[in-house]
Simulated scan of single mutants.
Amino acid sequence: MSTILNVIWLVFGGLWLALGYFLAGIVCCLLIITIPFGLASFRIGAYALWPFGRTIVDRSPRGAGLFTTIGNVIWVLVAGIWIAIGHVLTAIPMFVSIIGIPLGIANLKLIPVSLMPLGKVIVASNAVLPTYRHA
């Protein structure tokens, strides 16, 4: 079922969304100092290309480091809020049709990672994640 939804997603906007993230990643990598943002854009773009059957989790279960937090705050102020608004605006027309409801939900699932992309990793939805004990 996730393959069918991914193909429909790809045709009705996922490809263009992913290309936008990939373009942003290339620009960020060219500017050298923003390479972490570029890598995050590539990660989001890969998820935006084929979102069904995968999920986004925090890289570290103990929380983000100081540089990750500072980078995420900068990202939210510069680009994250605008990208999140774009996801909301493109999700609304997807919800209009019955077949577009899962696509709208997938678009809304991209909002948290588009707001704070650093410190995230994409895994299969059925992946067994390690459990960590806090000392």
Rank of each mutant, 00 (worst) to 15 (best):
T90F: 12
A18Y: 09
T34Q: 11
S2M: 08
A46Y: 05
S2D: 14
L31K: 00
L39T: 02
V78F: 14
A106L: 07
Y47H: 15
L5F: 08
T90Q: 13
W75F: 10
I98H: 02
I32L: 14
I56Y: 02
I26W: 14
L129K: 01
G13E: 08
I8Q: 03
I83F: 11
G86L: 04
W16M: 05
T90A: 05
G119I: 05
V11E: 02
I92D: 04
A135K: 01
L108P: 00
A64Y: 09
L108K: 09
T55L: 04
A106C: 06
G63I: 07
A91C: 02
I105K: 05
F37W: 15
N107Y: 08
L66I: 10
P61R: 12
T90E: 05
V78D: 01
M116I: 04
L23C: 07
L5M: 11
L77D: 00
I81M: 10
P51Y: 05
C28W: 11
W16R: 07
T69P: 00
R62W: 12
H87E: 04
L103K: 01
P61Y: 14
L19H: 06
T3D: 09
L115Q: 11
F12C: 05
L23I: 12
G65A: 11
I32V: 15
W16I: 02
P93M: 13
F22T: 00
G53K: 05
V27H: 04
S2A: 08
L15N: 03
G38S: 08
F22L: 05
L30N: 07
I99M: 10
A106T: 05
L129S: 04
G20R: 10
S2P: 00
V121M: 09
R43N: 09
L108A: 03
A124Q: 12
I122T: 15
V88R: 06
L118V: 01
I33A: 11
V57I: 15
V123Y: 06
T34N: 10
L115P: 06
L77M: 11
L31I: 12
V123I: 15
I8F: 14
P36Q: 12
K120G: 03
H87T: 01
G13N: 09
D58N: 13
Y21T: 00
V121H: 03
A106W: 11
P112Y: 14
I32P: 00
V7P: 00
I70G: 04
G45Y: 10
I85H: 03
A40E: 03
P117D: 07
W16K: 05
G86K: 06
T34S: 15
V88F: 13
V73R: 14
H87G: 00
G14S: 03
G53Q: 06
I85M: 13
R59M: 08
I99D: 01
V57K: 10
G65T: 14
S41T: 02
